[in-house]
Design a protein around this nucleic acid. Sequence first.
RNA 1: GGCCCGUUGGUCAAGAGGUCAAGACACCGCCCUUUCACGGCGGUAUCGCGAGUUCGAUUCUCGCACGGGUCACCA
Length: 485
Amino acid sequence: MEPKKVRTRFAPSPTGYMHIGNLRTALYTYLIAKKNNGTFILRIEDTDQARYVEGAVDIIYDTLRKTGLIWDEGPDIGGPVGPYIQSQRMGMFKKYAEQLVEMGHAYYCFCDKDRLEELHKIQTASGMPTKYDGHCRNLSKEEVQEKLAAGIPYVIRQKCPTEGTTTFHDEVFGDITVENSVLDDQILIKADGMPTYNFANVVDDHTMGITHVIRGNEYLSSTPKYNLLYEAFGWDIPVYIHVPPVMKDANNKLSKRNGDASFEDLIAKGYLEEAVINYIALLGWAPKGENEIFTLPELIQEFDVSGISKSPAIFDPAKLKAINGEYVRKLSKEDFIRDALPYIRQSCKKEDLNLDLLAELLQPRTEVFTDIPEQIDFIDSLPDYDISLYTHKKMKTNAESSLAVLKEILPILEALPDWKLDSINAAMADLVAKLQVKNGYVLWPLRVAVSGKQFTPGGGTEIAELLGKDETLRRIRIGIEKLSQ
RNA sequence: GGCCCGUUGGUCAAGAGGUCAAGACACCGCCCUUUCACGGCGGUAUCGCGAGUUCGAUUCUCGCACGGGUCACCA
């Protein structure tokens, strides 16, 4: 039998932000489609008007576009099985539900909310499982007609078998079997005539030809009921791929409510889209080989459902940072400068800044762009430092030796005709040779004097070039003054 | 509480009935080096517990513990 062309769908609710778990689901959904030369579909599930948020759909579009998860069919571009916005598909569901009633797989229920609440209370109090008690399950056709005619509000419920078991297969979790007796006769069509999510989802997935359903494993427990629906209609059951949640810590999911970072937040914090995608791919999925750094096209090659983990994965900011660092280092110098400039300007306003040189110093030392401002906060003005910085055991320097060295350096640099890194380096090398000391004996005091810091991107000579001759000399004089006191 | 699912280092995780139980991040040490970082080399650290099957279980089975999910006219 010719296998059906793979069609997957990402079906988010427009809630106003894209959280990491959701984005990962979108990624896996995309990868499974592309891996199989299939179609990746975007469907917006906006039927909960109460939760509707202005602009939320745009956030979904933006995020998917920025991360490269480009959909082949969707609300904005259409496709053969539209509409792709659930609220525009409302007309079709009731007729499917009525068909189910006729076939004996669903029934009208006239129970009002008070009765249901009462039932729930009793069941909870007596420790019984809370489920619909089947009150309207066996109404005769006449009774139903009568109530319908009388205009009594009703819902349509799924008629689940009460005996036996239902088994379904999941690509991640394997075969799962449940007792039919625990299945609730869930509502398919609400009193307002609209479908519940559970029903709409099944009908939408089928009518859109979805072959692989990728979703969070919180849906694992409702899957048997979905399958009963597919079977009742005689539809093909999709391949299920349930993915475990992304956690903040051992006990809590990553969520906006806990104040955890959304995709947008991470980008705002200076992370690169590619790095975020690469990292979240690794959260709950392991590649076959030892490499962990993959671009999106490489992920398509590498991804395999068998590598998806069954257990939850804790989001580790340290690892994300490390991976981001890899991507920052891979950037071309031009791209690095473009992305880093706003962060550079946060703490360095100097006009005639040698961006080229600064970028070379900064790029290997930057894991996240937000590291940058603090690294270069000494450029605009010399920090007020303590002379203890001049003491470095390994360099064999102290305040006294540094003072002597700075006094040697000052006239040499004052006399230096062209202020270029090479000539500064050469001048310092000459001094080192003349004094017959180690490089650091001369260069450590220089760095401290020009930066006022212990750790800087690049060494004293690079900083000297960056600062320019006048400022460098000024700072060396300040150093001499500090050390002379 | 019923049902379902899960449990390999601090984190992500590979793994197979017999392995010195991969790799990455983090951490530590060394090298490189004018500091830090980058890069290179090395190190510490893991199979939840108890039975059973077996010559041998981390791997298979069953209990237990712990954690998660689900039990809406929400999605």
